[in-house]
Design a protein around this nucleic acid. Structure first.
Lengths: 113, 113
DNA sequence: TTGACGCATGCCGATATCGGAATATGATGC
DNA sequence: GCATCATATTCCGATATCGGCATGCGTCAA
């Protein structure tokens, strides 16, 4: 075996620096492929391939507009990763556990409405 | 090129499920290699290799005790990853940005004391 | 010193990754 | 239809990964 297929695992998908750069760029709004490639200094096929991975793990959505294909962030998939690392938070900060837990509870309650 | 060397990037280090399992196990306290291998159902060399990667990115520390080598969590390295994903938090929850920012500010202030 | 134990390392094969270049697909406009 | 633009896909080579197995190294006890 080699590494788990990057298409099935969000952790693997964001293990690649260029893909993280794409996600960060998309925070400012949806963009076509060529524009991203240009802004990030990568080739168009390179961008397309990374976008494909991100699409398959559900971190981006795309919609067609004319000849272009606009990619947009769908960051919900990052949440499990965020929460996984958050499970270690008490190991690097001790004193704010209470308040963090309080915020988490609020969010939880909010979701269940 | 292939993927960036896993030893230089925390994101790559935690992209491997078995390594995440090791980190999760170490939350309960330091352990020797063989014990972890047994608990996680992997071979001793397998465990050693994953531990080496985790050691090189600074996510675990080790100390020798007799013939054993006890590994302990050093989760500070997970913080950047946590904060990176946190940068996308507003895309999956909107209404608690203010409170989150407040907590972050408190932590920040705390650090700078 | 010798043996046993714990762990690390080296080698191997299979596989997946990334980047580049060429090419295919698809949509638009003339 | 045909040319053009935007994007996706394919093929390729180089490389890194992971798991298994055997073996090396260090430590302890007798």
């Amino acid at each position: 075996m080699a590494r788990a297929a990057t298409t099935s695992d969000v952790f693997n998908a964001i293990a690649e620096p260029q893909r993280r750069a794409i996600l960060a760029l998309l925070r400012t709004g949806e963009r076509p492929v060529t524009e991203m490639a240009q802004e990030l200094g990568m080739t168009q096929p390179g961008a397309s391939k990374h976008l494909r991975v991100l699409r398959e793990v559900g971190l981006v959505q795309d919609r067609k507009v004319g000849k272009q294909r606009l990619y947009a962030l769908d960051a919900g998939g990052l949440r499990p990763g965020h929460e996984w690392t958050g499970g270690f938070e008490r190991f690097w900060s001790e004193s704010f556990d209470r308040l963090d837990a309080y915020v988490q509870d609020l969010k939880q309650a909010r979701q269940e409405e």
